[in-house]
Write a protein that binds this DNA or RNA. Structure first.
Lengths: 343, 343
DNA sequence: CTGAAAGCGCTTACAG
DNA sequence: CTGAAAGCGCTTACAG
């Protein structure tokens, strides 16, 4: 029976018998009891996704979906656990998870940062997702922030822009660092001047984006394109542009980051942005985890970078040709810049 | 041992012994094996949340979080399953779920509509979430659309508005119906005229909302307040108002529905809206499900309505006082209304 | 190759 | 009251 239903390689029964067994199983509505099987095989066929916050992040869905799809394909169920950042809750949840014998865990955060993997997970296969582990020893899957930022700047430079500013989250972290690094690297590759005055830090919401953009637009030599740290800051750039009477993309080009649901499409014109690959990250992390769960050996504890694709909508246009040379002439002549008006 | 660790009522061991047993368990890192326990007790302590779409809906998070928190509190784990609307996938998933002996299932959709509960769930405790079951026999938890719409109209009427229009999803469904019913009921309660010309149907996105609002604003006697079927349509109402040179809330008041993450706060002024109580619904449905799982009897197969609270932001202002009496005088005198200009 | 028995780690009904 | 045994439904190593 068991041999037939589990479809073992060498046939222990004739084709006819197999057919009859299957038929009987079907008519009786027989479904093998996974709990009993799990007790014997010491495998629950269950993976956990442990995360800090899910409720407030609009892209949580993609991350979960990617993980779930990959788990399913391998015949595993995905258990969801949200700690809300509460350590006590987290410990409690991890105990429950281990009691239920989950085969492995994804330890995820909802934005790219550094985390310490809880001790309760010791001995269990773990992959860190959308975060960097504080201590070594765990493989992790993160967005390729640097390459993503390069893509953004490349898109802008490709449209002829030479004064490309960057409006950056004032908080430090892997995302801010990586995107700044990418911005600088691509500026250099394009042979463009990396003026520190064109990098403005602010709170990572639309108010911060607006403030930073106003500061840039009021400079003597304002940028013709702004790369925003994220889509919410890009919304602020739109506001600032409208306040200064600048049209997007005719007078100012804008590229965001994240590809936040709703924002990109509701803005007018639509926001060109670099997408955070949440689905792909969830999927990749789960595949890594399954390799460890099913395979004998642990995967190396390295960071797997996932590409961030550019989503073209309507916020990037060609740079105005006439003004650039004039201003650059000024700079080259070493003339003093007029004092900037900050407000 | 077992008796001590499970803290049975009547003490089978002395306090000292109990202490020693617990101590030993702790030092050995002993965690009871939930799988073995489940095999014996025929309870996996696992609940499933089966849903059509999660990835693209921004409020999925709240629904999941509410369900998860309630499950946790009772010591249950929540397994997530997303079918993406694919029936074949759904059947496969349900088989896997039953094989893993889940104790009950939440069958959810990401917006309020009518669903048929799959046969594979027969015999398992099921609660339908954010949807109405096509066939009777299942309890369900849904937002109180009608009361929510009444709240919106009441807020507008409370600010003195007497010409309150409704911009409605052209697709039929429990949400559209309930909100329309609530709109009419509250209009009646406030003693306001229910002019059919003030209900305009359109696609439920910002483009549809804009089109519908323009139609209303171009009427001979335009509304001073618009209640929008959802927040995305409300965004369209903002666009339309701006195109006609109307300020919100000075010249036009707007109330939305859903309380979509991002939208309400990014708009300027902030959108006053009726919130869909996703967290509360997830929680309520799970509690209902647990009552059935743990209790002997099935809960009655009735619909549990969850209240939709009003979120006040800045889009509702007082109605302009002068014009209202004049117009009402006109109507009261029974004079013919000037023909409306539709486009 | 095949069938019967042991055992996964618990809980529970039962004999002492 | 308490300890030892049976059994949950599978898989797997083993004797025939």
């Amino acid at each position: 029976m068991s041999a037939v239903l589990n479809d073992e390689g060498s046939p222990r029964a004739s084709v006819a018998t197999r057919e009859r067994v299957h038929e009987a199983a079907r008519s009786l509505g027989y479904v093998p009891n996974g709990i009993a099987r799990g007790l014997r095989t010491r495998r629950s066929m269950t993976l956990a996704l442990i995360s800090d916050v899910i409720a407030t992040t609009p892209y949580a869905g993609q991350l979960i979906q990617g993980a779930q799809d990959a788990a399913w394909r391998a015949g595993y169920l995905l258990v969801l656990v949200n700690t809300g950042g509460n350590t006590e809750l987290e410990e409690h949840a991890i105990r429950a998870l281990r009691q239920q014998q989950v085969d492995g865990a994804l330890y995820a955060t909802m934005y790219h940062r550094v985390v310490s993997v809880p001790q309760g997970l010791d001995g269990l296969p773990v992959v860190v997702l959308d975060a960097r582990p504080q201590t070594d020893g765990f493989p992790c899957v993160v967005p390729d922030e640097e390459a993503g930022a390069r893509t953004a700047v490349e898109e802008l430079a490709g449209h002829g822009h030479r004064r490309i500013a960057f409006v950056l989250d004032e908080r430090d972290g892997p995302a801010a660092r990586g995107r700044l690094r990418g911005y600088r690297a691509e500026l250099a590759r394009q042979g463009l001047l990396d003026d520190p005055g064109r990098v403005v830090r602010a709170a990572s919401d639309s108010a911060g984006g607006r403030r930073a953009a106003l500061e840039l637009l009021d400079q003597a030599e304002p940028p013709t394109a702004i790369f925003a740290f994220n889509d919410q800051m890009a919304v602020g750039v739109y506001h600032a542009a409208s306040e200064r009477g600048l049209r997007i993309p005719e007078d100012l080009s804008v590229v965001g980051f994240d590809d936040l649901y709703v924002i990109g499409r509701e803005l007018s014109p639509g926001l060109t942005t670099v997408a955070l690959p949440h689905y792909a990250m969830g999927e990749a992390a789960t595949q890594l985890l399954l390799a460890e769960v099913e395979g004998a050996e642990r995967p190396p504890a390295v960071a797997r970078l996932v590409a961030c694709p550019l989503i073209r909508r309507g916020s990037v246009g060609p740079a105005r040709s006439p003004d650039a040379p004039a201003h650059r002439g000024q700079l080259a002549a070493g003339q003093p810049l007029p004092e900037r008006s900050h407000r």
